[in-house]
Amino acid sequence: MRAPSLLLLALLSAAGCRRERRSFSEPSPLQARVERAEPLPSGEPLSHFLDNAWAVSEGARLFGWYNCAGCHSLGGGGGMGPPLRDGAWRYGGAPADVHRSIVEGRPNGMPAFGPRIPDYQTWQLVAYVLSLSGRLRLDVEPGRPEAIAIGKPPVMVSKKLPSAEPLPEAP
């Protein structure tokens, strides 16, 4: 009895183990590279943030802390800035695109946060932003916040993380 159930549970949980790793204030190994705002090669280092519940929740905290929420709203519904939970991406929804948007800013009013935010925090923000439109796995997505805002988007836009096509610019 114990052996098979152990095996089953180990299998179930092994998938979750990396998603739970927490590093209380650590510099990212990617920092040097992405400070030049190069798009990241996909693969393991990126999942360090995108597949990690802790990183995503840190991103949620930073989303308020760096005033992202001021423009894009606490729940990502938008306001001064465009909504982030609708799955439409003006400048591309791939992680590297979102990262570039944060670091370099965008012409219609998105400020460049590159000099203000350490790179590992930028990636945490990217992870959170992607979770807003349901583009991260359910088991790393943040739950509802302890606030009057609501948490999860009602629709799952896409489970995968493709390099989402940029939308045509609004007139």
Binding site: G16, R19, S57, A60, D139, P142, G143, P145, E146
Partner: peptide, 13 residues
């Protein structure tokens, strides 16, 4: 809660 709530305890722990 709220430490163990959804906001302050992310993930599945």
């Amino acid at each position: 809660v709220p430490l163990s709530g959804p906001q302050f305890s992310p993930g599945k722990r």
